[in-house]
């Protein structure tokens, strides 16, 4: 009961602030793929793994006053930044326990761009395929983004680094 909401608050709190809904979506997805216990269901959308449940949960948390959402008009689109309120911090402390090593993962992810996280999360979405097929799949579904070989290598390195953090946690 409300534990899933509390985990999202805790996640944003560890990040300090997260700029971009897409970025938050991908960060939680990557953490989930690293076996941190997030229960939001993800499906593949045009822009990579996306969870409607997470979107609704974040909206609920904003309405409850546990998260703030700052809106910035970028001309052709709007960008949102999320932070945790004092009330939200109390709520998360009350409702959920600390997750070992999650802070390290969140810190690493938050330092990356939304575009890069989109690449990482898409590679993780196809993690049952061999490496070459995963790369090929990314080029098919994200052809427009034209990811370079360097970005691909960086993405695989990040996945390895994150897996190591999680391995140490267990």
């Amino acid at each position: 009961m409300l534990e899933e909401h509390a985990k999202v608050v805790q996640f944003v709190s560890l990040a300090g602030s997260v700029t971009g809904r897409k970025k938050l979506q991908k960060m939680v997805y990557i953490a989930k793929k690293m076996k941190f216990p997030f229960n939001e269901k993800y499906q593949f959308h045009i822009y990579g793994p996306y969870s409607e449940e997470l979107t609704l949960r974040v909206e609920e948390l904003c309405t409850m006053g546990f998260l703030t959402e700052e809106m910035e008009d970028k001309g052709s689109y709007v960008q949102y930044t999320y932070q945790v309120t004092d009330k939200g911090t109390n709520f998360s402390n009350h409702m959920c326990e600390e997750q070992q090593h999650l802070n390290e993962v969140v810190e690493v992810l938050n330092s990356k761009s939304a575009r890069f996280l989109e690449l990482v999360s898409t590679l993780l979405f196809f993690d049952e395929l061999p490496k070459e097929e995963r790369i090929q799949k990314v080029h098919v579904v994200k052809g427009k983004l034209k990811f370079t070989e360097t970005e691909m290598n960086e993405a695989f390195s990040l996945i390895e680094a994150l897996e190591e953090i999680k391995l140490n946690a267990n």
């Binding site: 971009g20 809904r21 897409k22 979506q25 959308h45 045009i46 822009y47 996306y50 409607e52 979107t55 609704l56 970028k74 052709s76 689109y77 709007v78 960008q79 949102y80 939304a114 989109e118």
Partner: peptide, 11 residues
């Protein structure tokens, strides 16, 4: 889900 325009490249 509801209809929601969202942010660029979210959905």
């Amino acid at each position: 889900d509801f209809y929601r325009p969202g942010e660029e490249e979210e959905r």
